[in-house]
Structures are given as structure tokens and as C-alpha cells.
């Protein structure tokens, strides 16, 4: 369980993040979304005990970040993938992973075995001794992710994990993240990839140097937008738009080709009324669907307009 209360970090006169409050229950995937410079990396660094908060507090299990005695314990429980992979470019993938495995005190035989499994899964076992400086961006990223997980941490912090990966590799990473979740690990992700966050995160926090909004991607969309339904008909008479506005539960109506798009208060109650009204007008309804607002819509609305 990760709890942040009023977490704040300033660098001189720059406020990176202010009054950040979240609660991440164990076994969840939590996404931090926000524009460049929103303070996502800074927050992750504070939670990794790399930098001290200026104000506020955060706890991981019963340990407090920023407390000297607890830092060691926390660092043992977490695995961090930083923004930049930061591998030792002259060393091979094996040595890069082995260095960390040693620092985490993993016994030799176990180390050898788990590195072999990891590199084989990544398809890099045959190239384990080549300097990683010559590897592609995505390959480096995969090695860095493997490095963050080498000691099987309970809390996993991933700063833009799929940023440099091709779609197949990104999918692999997402599936892996979901697998980690199913093992009970708790995962915090910084990302700019909204559809990714929507797909894998249980909860997201929109931040812009402060918390803008926290909730599940669905909840956020619901709270922000009136619900929209779209009705596909064989033919839409030109006068329909004016006539339908007489129904008082419809806040907005619009015609797109042969689709009628309506903002309603509550589709569960309002849809049957709309449809019977349309039938009375002698119109034929083909499909009725609810238009889901994507996280992207939410993000743009909150960050670009409201977050200012």
C-alpha cells in the first residue's frame, strides 16, 4: 500500500509537484498522467527515496519515505525503471543484470538462473556479452525493465516503460505488467500513452504540478462529460433536429450523416423514451450505442483547459 499525503517538491523557485495525494492499494496498477514537466518523474523519484520531499509525507507499507532508517528497506522492496535506461554501455546485457542482482544480494546460482531465463525470454541470450551500447533503444529498454525486476520487487515503478518500444514489444510489456499485477505486485506507471493507461491502469491520476483528478479511467470520463448516445437510422428528415429538442432531457443534439448524436442525462431511463418518440415519428432505428469518452478526451479537457 502506497499512501501520499500532501507530497510536495520544489527545486528552488520551481514547484515540481505540490500537495500530491494518492492511495494505491496492493495489487493495483496506478497511472500517473500529465504533460511534460508535470512532476511525474519527480514524484517517482521521491517514492524511490532518491530525493527528499520538501513537504508532506508518503508511506510504502509502514515505511516512510524521506526517513533515513526506512530508505534502505524501501529501496529493497521497489524496482525502478528510470526515464533513461542508464545501462553500462560498454558491458554486456548479462553483466548489466548481474551487477544489480549482486547488489540486491541474490545468491549466485539463483542469479545465473534468473538472468538466463530473462535474457532467453527477451531473445538476447545469444548476445548476452555484446556491449549493450550497440543495442537498439527498445532492446536497451527491455534490459532496463528486466533490471528493475531482477529482485522480484513488491512495488514496481515504471517511468514511461513503453516509450521507445515498437507496438509488439509495447504489447509484450503491457501483458507482462498485467501478469505482474496478477502475481500481486503493485505497479506505478508514468506514461503519456493514454490508450495504454486506459487499458491497463486500475486508477489514474492526472497531474500538472498538483493533482488534477484521480479515478478509474471510466469514472473520470463519466464525471466529466454528459453521456452521449448515437442512434443510427435509415433516413433522418431535416426537421428532426428541431423537433427532438422539445424533449427536455436532451441537452444537445447533432446530426452526423445518418447518425443522430444526443447528450442525455441518463441513457438507462432516457433511451426507451427517445426510441418510442422516434418510432412515433415513423422513423426506423437501426442501432443505438453509447459513445464512450476516451481517456484522451478527459486528459485534453482537464489538462489543456481546466488544469491551467
Amino acid at each position: 500500500m502506497i499512501v501520499c499525503e500532501g507530497l510536495t517538491k520544489t527545486f528552488g523557485s520551481i514547484t515540481a509537484i505540490q500537495d500530491f495525494n494518492i492511495e494505491i492499494p496492493d495489487g493495483r496498477i496506478f497511472g500517473l498522467l500529465g504533460p511534460n514537466g508535470a512532476g511525474k518523474t519527480t514524484t517517482m523519484r521521491m517514492l524511490s527515496c532518491l530525493i527528499q520531499p520538501t513537504a508532506g509525507s508518503a508511506h510504502i507499507d509502514s515505511y516512510e519515505i524521506g526517513k533515513k532508517e526506512d530508505a534502505q528497506k524501501i529501496r529493497g522492496m521497489i524496482g525502478l525503471l528510470p526515464e533513461v535506461p542508464g545501462l553500462y554501455e560498454t558491458l554486456g546485457a548479462y553483466k548489466n543484470l548481474d551487477y544489480y542482482a549482486q547488489l540486491y544480494g541474490i545468491p549466485k546460482t539463483q542469479r545465473e538462473e534468473s538472468i538466463k531465463t530473462t535474457l532467453t525470454n527477451l531473445g538476447l541470450w545469444d548476445r548476452r556479452n555484446e556491449p549493450v551500447g550497440g543495442f537498439s533503444k527498445g532492446m536497451k529498454q527491455k534490459i532496463a525493465i528486466a533490471r528493475a525486476l531482477i529482485h522480484d520487487p513488491k512495488y514496481i515503478f515504471l517511468d514511461e516503460p513503453t516509450a521507445s518500444l515498437d507496438p509488439a514489444a509495447a504489447k509484450m510489456v503491457r501483458e507482462y505488467i498485467l501478469e505482474l499485477k496478477s502475481q500481486g505486485d503493485t505497479i506505478l506507471i508514468n506514461t503519456h500513452n493514454l490508450s495504454e493507461a486506459e487499458r491497463i491502469c486500475d486508477t489514474v491520476a492526472l497531474v500538472k504540478n498538483r493533482t488534477v483528478k484521480v479515478g478509474s479511467p471510466k469514472e473520470l470520463a463519466r464525471g466529466l462529460f454528459a453521456r452521449t448516445i448515437s442512434i443510427t437510422m435509415q433516413k433522418i428528415p431535416p426537421s428532426l433536429l428541431k423537433d427532438i429538442s422539445s424533449l427536455d432531457f436532451i441537452s444537445q443534439a447533432q446530426v452526423n450523416g445518418n447518425q443522430l448524436v444526443l447528450n442525455v442525462r441518463n441513457p438507462e431511463e432516457d433511451n426507451p423514451q427517445v426510441i418510442s418518440w422516434l418510432m412515433k415519428q415513423g422513423l426506423q432505428v437501426q442501432f443505438v450505442t453509447e459513445e464512450e469518452h476516451s481517456l484522451e478526451d478527459v486528459y485534453l479537457k482537464l489538462i489543456e483547459e481546466g488544469g491551467r
Binding site: 524511490s48 527515496c49 532518491l50 521497489i78 525502478l80 525503471l81 528510470p82 533513461v84 547488489l103 540486491y104
Partner: peptide
């Protein structure tokens, strides 16, 4: 320069 310090500092090494 290589930015390899950050992940290193996130290990329990003091």
C-alpha cells in the same frame, strides 16, 4: 553522463 546513477541509487546500496 550515462544516467546510470539513478537506477543504481534506487538499489539498497548506501
Amino acid at each position: 553522463n550515462n544516467r546510470s546513477l539513478e537506477p543504481l541509487l534506487a538499489t539498497p546500496t548506501t
